[in-house]
Deep mutational scan, measured.
Amino acid sequence: KLPPGWEKRMFANGTVYYFNHITNASQFERPSG
């Protein structure tokens, strides 16, 4: 399970990334916590 605010998303080319809808942060590494 991801930390609060984070969700797993995917680009059109299939690349997975993680987006935080609270802070609008995005990253390729899975957030810890």
Rank of each mutant, 00 (worst) to 15 (best):
L2G: 02
R30E: 12
P3V: 02
P3N: 03
N24S: 10
R30Q: 10
E7D: 05
W6Y: 01
F19Q: 04
R30I: 13
T23D: 05
E29P: 06
G5D: 06
P3H: 03
H21E: 10
T23E: 06
E7M: 06
H21V: 15
E29I: 07
H21Q: 11
P4R: 09
S32F: 12
P4E: 11
F28R: 10
Y17Q: 05
A12P: 15
F19A: 02
S26Y: 11
F11T: 15
K8L: 13
N13S: 07
R9N: 03
K1S: 14
H21R: 10
N13Q: 03
G5K: 02
Q27A: 06
L2T: 03
A25W: 08
G5W: 06
N20R: 00
N20S: 05
L2M: 08
S26A: 12
R30H: 14
F19T: 04
M10Q: 12
P31S: 01
E7H: 08
V16G: 04
A12K: 11
F19S: 02
P3M: 05
K8M: 15
L2I: 06
P4I: 10
R30K: 10
K1T: 13
T15Y: 07
F19M: 03
N13P: 04
H21N: 13
G5N: 09
N20P: 00
F19L: 05
K1L: 13
Q27Y: 05
P31M: 01
A25I: 13
E7N: 04
T23K: 03
P4N: 10
F19E: 06
E7W: 03
P3I: 03
V16W: 10
N13I: 02
P3E: 05
G5P: 10
R9Y: 07
R30L: 11
E29G: 06
G5L: 02
Y17W: 08
V16D: 08
T23G: 02
F11Q: 13
P31K: 01
E29W: 08
P4K: 09
E29A: 06
Y17T: 02
Y18V: 00
F19Y: 15
P3L: 06
G14Y: 01
G14V: 02
E29K: 05
K1I: 14
F11G: 13
K8N: 02
A25Y: 08
Q27D: 02
V16R: 03
S32K: 10
L2E: 09
A12M: 09
M10N: 07
G14A: 03
G33H: 12
A12R: 09
I22D: 10
T15L: 12
T15Q: 13
Y17A: 03
S26Q: 13
G33K: 10
F28Q: 09
G5R: 02
M10I: 13
R9S: 03
W6A: 00
R9F: 06
F11W: 10
N24H: 12
P4W: 11
I22Q: 09
Q27P: 00
N20G: 01
E7S: 08
P3Y: 04
F19W: 09
S26V: 15
E7G: 04
G14S: 03
Y17G: 05
I22Y: 11
R30P: 14
E7R: 04
F11R: 10
T23N: 07
T15R: 09
K1W: 13
N24W: 05
M10V: 14
Y18P: 02
R30M: 12
L2V: 04
S32M: 14
